[in-house]
């Protein structure tokens, strides 16, 4: 898959998972993998830079909590993140409809062609 297409898609997927509720990195990776049936296997080397970048873009906010004696960083969607997610989803929808329209369309030929 084209990396550019993947990159924008991964961010949308992360925002979508976080939109469901505050969550942490490991859980985000697991959720994306399970729901995509293994198609999207977010490596840690990609996941955490993406999370931090989204946080710097103010699309995500974070807070710390203590679990089992460890500090855990939770992410949640900000209002700006919600807006961005909606835009990305609308764009993806339009994109996928367009692709599906081409890929799924039957070519109707005029009689005699």
């Amino acid at each position: 898959m084209d990396s550019r297409l993947l990159w924008g898609t991964v961010e949308m997927l992360i925002l979508e998972v976080v939109a469901e509720g505050p969550t942490y990195g490991y859980e985000i990776a697991q959720t994306v993998g399970e729901r995509s049936r293994g198609y999207f296997d977010l490596k840690e080397g990609s996941l955490y830079p993406a999370l931090h970048r989204l946080e710097q873009q103010k699309l995500l906010t974070s807070f710390w909590d203590e679990v089992d004696g460890r500090r855990r960083k939770y992410y949640k969607l900000s209002i700006k993140g919600q807006t961005t997610l909606d835009e990305k989803k609308a764009a993806w929808k339009a994109f996928s409809q367009g692709v599906n329209g081409v890929l799924g369309a039957q070519i109707v030929l005029a009689p005699g062609q």
Partner: peptide
């Protein structure tokens, strides 16, 4: 410290 704790938590979960 935040970077170290976040990655450590991920490693612990994995």
């Amino acid at each position: 410290q935040d970077i170290a704790d976040e990655l450590a938590d991920h490693l612990a979960c994995a």
